[in-house]
Nucleic acid binder design. Structure first.
Length: 937
RNA sequence: GCGGGGGUGUCAGAGCCAGGUCAAAUGAGCAGGACUGAGGCUCCUGUGCCUUUAGUGGCUGCGAGGGUUCAAAUCCCUUCCCCCGCACCA
């Protein structure tokens, strides 16, 4: 069986028969599902396949359940990553070239052509689409679009008009990481090493120079609460400082900062400059305590960090303490101040910084260990530190920080500045990333209270898979506030209220599912004529069809068909993505639906899945263990990849893709295929079904029941265990038990193929033909289980046979002789009665009392006492279901042939009372329900 | 810090919501055997410790410590550890 060949063969058939190109059908239930569309700035690997395969398995299942299923796909090209990637190719960035060559094996002659964004998108999107087709995804490709298509741009502009109309678009100022060289905002993919620049607020405190009234030394700090412990100020004598004017006040900051500061404070003017060393020995005033503080030189002060000026809190900041110690032996030694405590910290004395420095053996301010010491002390003090300053006594560090910051700012003793806190971060162009306050930035106001309430309502009506993701959504809804929605650069859609800006990528991908419903129909239209009235009509049913159609340059009938298509497919029944999008995309997706569409069109379900691991570890460039999807398909075949990726773990957990697993899948698949081959050729019905046949049927229908139920929560792993692995095991037992009914086998295999079809559709199509199935298995009906075929007693009977076999084997091993004859004695009815009593009462005295109330049991009071004692020992393990003595006896009799074959000896089965011979009788008396007594001669 | 998830046998991973059929599914690994020219293929058996030349026995055990219960991997409390997210970025 060649999985690769089978794949191609059936993909061709599906395409020819247009098997997955649904049209609205009056009266037929629909099911519309989408997965987050791919971003084609590189090829896809098996990790990407997880979400799509999950979606496809679901789509195929729902199709078999008789619904009209729409599963479309498009490409997301919005934003800067595509541009950044093309630029890196153009610059022949060795890292990128290596990934393309070595991992994705992009042909050498193709790579140089990817230096242009459009070509890059074309190439990779084709690559991705090919991979999806080769995976056999049941996607309706007629509806494919790119987010930079004109028609889609028109749609997104309409979306933003709607948001504006609701008052959800607002304007404000916003700090962003910025490359001063390229004059653009940067994201992680724009930086060296893909570092995500983290921006945080710093409090810039004004320390007035004693000798220069009106001029301040500006100290930026993350710990304003320590203002009470400042003993001096630090400057770097090696660098230059500039005097800048902001709002009428004059401040000294490092010249490096003076350069980038206008990005945050455009009104800033530079009015002077001097060397850092000129400040040494001067005095400044603490704005809060009024203390007079000296200015000392320190080499740890970096020109680009904060303001290039540092306030010294030796009690709590290891660097400050170390720098003071470093002054020993200089002319400043006599002036070295004593630390002043601000916070008390459990496990530490008055001066935690001093202690930690001594404990960790940090030598001086240039010792790399100083950083670790700082981190430890800062985090401890912030979270568990308590203020000792009288005014704030007992307050937690974090709370004091907020309060003191506010007090200083409102008293104009400090300013708020922003800085990159995980710096230095470098742009790919080589410039150091700084912070820019973008003025008049546009935001989507996800903080809007009423909007949030609607979103909460939407979620309360939505099905979430797995359900345990719900708190994450709730949390996200809670903290969401204004989100910047435009950028200066990038592909996508221009912003309707500022044509110089582009709509940012997380904002143009929130309601595109609606676009799919008409994407194929819009394809032939003039995109210039797609105005708001058009979209209002199609998606909201507003306006006059005739007028709208005329404006749009189409017939009224065409227009109405679009509206009808939308109404047929919407709402979205299921949305799929990896779990990492819960905190942004998936929540935005609901927000925007709620804002724009009426309640009946709000989404119904979101399913999120985990990632794919490669041989136990995360796929990463550095590990070089990325498995490109198309390579995996070539190597294993689509069905094997599909099956492995979605059944390796339950939905929310990461799934491991490994060689051993694929081998196991292939082996079982081939085994099953072999059975199909064998039994499809075998002649029809052979006589009456035996007990073991009924057992197999029971197992089959139970599987069908479990699988059907498990699909509700997309428990694909559970289904695979039940349908795939356990089928193989059941069939092995069936054959071992000398089962061989061809009719039953065909029935089993047929249903098995149907249940496997969503997972491994290509192989199943192939097997379906062999089994004489009609049409495509992809369009066949999902098997309905028959509750009547599920037989507890058949399964229990088989269990007794199996356990008895194991027991016999145990005994044989123990006595080490070849059996001549095997006698099995089934327990009598009264024991079963007693068993039930014991299980119910759970206590010896109560059970005994109840037993004595029964005349049959009372008659054998002595035996009852003995057996009950025995039963009580394991009262917890007594089971609910039990065979009657007739059932157990006949199960064992039925299996006589099997036992005889297993142990190559004569077999006798009887009730315990029928035992002949003293030794036999004694043994037989030990029989208990579901546990026949065994005697071996 | 805030929010979420999780700690199970050699490993991966079920079970936990609805306590008992749990020495704990399933798979992998490992060991032994069968088949074979040979096997990394396939099949069978075993795989916590102890006991037992007749099975349905004992002990330990599901991060750690306590508790509830006739009974706890499952419920409650305390505690330690790990992973993920905290945005303007797809």
């Amino acid at each position: 069986m060649n999985f690769q060949e089978i794949g191609e063969k059936w993909q061709k058939r599906w395409a020819e028969e247009k098997a997955f190109e649904p049209e609205p059908e009056e009266g037929k239930r629909k099911f519309f599902l989408t997965a987050a569309f791919p971003y084609p700035n590189s090829p896809q690997h098996i990790g990407h396949a997880r979400t799509y395969t999950t979606t496809d398995v679901y789509a195929r299942y729902m199709r078999m359940r008789g619904t009209n299923v729409l599963f479309p796909m498009g490409f997301h090209v919005t934003g800067t990553p595509v541009l950044a990637m093309a630029k890196r190719v153009a610059a022949k960035d060795p890292e990128i070239l290596e990934i393309f060559e070595k991992i994705y094996r992009v042909p050498a002659d193709v790579i140089p052509t990817l230096d242009e964004p459009k070509r890059l998108v074309d190439y990779f999107s084709r690559e991705i689409e090919m991979g999806m087709r080769e995976m056999g995804f049941s996607i309706d490709w007629r509806r494919k679009f790119y987010t930079y298509d004109k028609a889609f741009n028109a749609f997104i502009r309409w979306q933003f008009e709607k948001l504006k109309g609701k008052g959800y678009l607002v304007k404000g100022n916003h700090p962003v990481p910025w490359c001063p060289n390229e004059d653009n905002a940067v994201g992680a993919h724009d930086t060296k090493g893909d570092v995500d620049p983290n921006i945080d607020q710093m409090t810039a405190i004004k320390f007035e120079l004693k000798d220069e009234p009106g001029n301040y030394l500006l100290c930026a700090t993350f710990r304003p609460e320590t203002i009470y412990g400042v003993t001096n100020a630090w400057i770097n004598p090696q660098i230059k400082y500039s005097l800048v004017e902001i709002g009428g006040s004059k401040y000294w900051v490092s010249s490096a900062v003076a350069k980038s500061l206008p990005l945050q404070i455009p009104s800033m003017r530079k009015i002077g400059e001097r060397n850092g060393s000129e400040f040494e020995g001067k005095k400044v005033l603490n704005p809060v305590t009024g203390d007079e503080l000296p200015i000392f030189p320190a080499s740890f002060v970096q020109p680009e960090v904060g303001t290039g000026v540092v306030m010294s809190v030796p009690a709590h900041a290891p660097y400050d303490y170390l720098a003071l110690m470093d002054l020993k032996g200089t002319k400043w030694e006599p002036m070295i101040p004593e630390p002043k405590q601000v916070l008390e910290l459990e496990g530490f004395g008055e001066f935690p910084a001093k202690e930690i420095v001594e404990r960790m053996g940090v030598k001086n301010q240039n010792d790399p260990k100083a950083e670790a010491a700082t981190e430890e002390i800062y985090s401890k003090e912030a979270h568990t530190g308590k203020m000792v300053i009288e005014k704030y006594a007992g307050m937690r560090g974090v709370d004091a920080k907020e309060r003191i910051k506010e007090e200083m700012v409102s008293a104009k003793k400090a300013l708020m500045l922003h800085d990159v806190i995980n710096g230095p971060v470098w742009c790919r162009c080589g410039a150091r990333i700084c912070v820019k306050i973008v003025a008049d930035q546009w935001f989507i106001d996800y903080g809007n209270k009423e909007w949030k309430d609607d979103v909460k309502e939407a979620f309360s009506r939505m099905n979430l898979i797995p359900e345990k993701t719900r708190p994450e959504y709730e949390y996200t809804i809670g903290w969401l506030k204004e989100k910047a929605c435009v950028r200066a650069q990038g592909l996508g859609t221009t912003f309707p209220y500022d044509e110089t800006k582009m709509i940012e990528s997380l904002s143009d991908s929130t309601i595109y599912m609606a676009f799919y419903t008409v994407a194929d129909l819009i394809g032939g239209m003039d995109p210039e004529r797609l105005n708001s009235q058009f979209f209002d009509f199609v998606f909201l049913g507003k306006g006059d069809a005739g007028a709208v159609a005329e404006e749009a340059g189409i017939s009224e009938k065409e227009l109405r068909a679009m509206r009808a298509s939308f109404l047929y497919w919407y709402p979205l029944d299921s949305r799929h993505s990896a779990g990492d999008l819960i905190h942004n995309h998936l929540t935005f997706f609901v927000f925007n639906h709620v804002a724009i569409f009426p309640k009946e069109h709000w989404p119904r379900q979101i399913a999120t899945n985990g990632f794919v691991l490669m041989e136990g570890s995360k796929m990463s460039k550095s590990l070089g263990n990325i498995m490109p999807l198309r390579e995996a398909i070539r190597k294993y075949g689509a069905d094997i990849v599909r099956f492995s990726v979605v059944t390796g773990a339950e939905l929310d957990a990461d799934s491991d893709f490994n060689e051993a697993m694929t081998e196991g899948v292939v082996a079982r698949m081939k085994w099953m295929a072999g059975l199909v081959e064998e039994y499809s050729a075998k002649e029809g019905s052979e006589g009456k079904a035996k007990a073991i046949d009924l057992w197999l049927l029971s197992k089959l229908h139970r599987k069908m029941k479990i699988a059907t139920k498990a699909f509700e929560k997309l428990a694909l792993r559970e289904i695979s265990q039940e349908v795939f692995y356990s089928s193989v095991n059941d069939l092995r037992w069936y054959f071992k038990r000398t089962g061989s009914n061809a009719k039953i086998m065909r029935d089993f295999l047929r249903n098995w193929v149907l249940m496997m079809a969503p997972f491994t559709p290509h192989t199943c199509e192939e097997l379906w033909v062999k089994l004489g199935g009609e049409g495509l298995v992809s369009q066949a009906k999902w098997p309905e289980f028959d509750e009547g075929k599920i037989s507890e007693s058949a399964e229990l009977a088989e269990e007794v046979v199996g356990k008895t076999r194991d027991d016999v084997e145990n005994i044989l091993k123990l006595i080490g002789k070849k059996p001549a004859k095997l006698c099995l004695y089934a327990a009598e009815g009264w024991k079963r009665k007693l068993y039930s009593i014991a299980r119910e009462e759970k206590r010896f005295d109560l059970a005994m009392k109840k037993a004595m109330a029964d005349s049959e049991l009372k008659a054998r009071a002595k035996d009852v006492g003995r057996v009950l004692q025995q039963l009580m020992k394991d009262v917890g393990t007594l089971r609910r279901l039990m065979l009657t003595e007739e059932q157990e006896l006949s199960a064992l009799r039925d299996a006589k042939e099997f036992f005889a074959q297993e142990f190559s000896c004569e077999v006798e089965v009887m009730m315990e009372g029928e035992a002949v011979g003293d030794a036999q009788k004694k043994k037989a008396a030990n029989a208990s329900p579901m546990k026949p007594s065994i005697f071996i001669e």
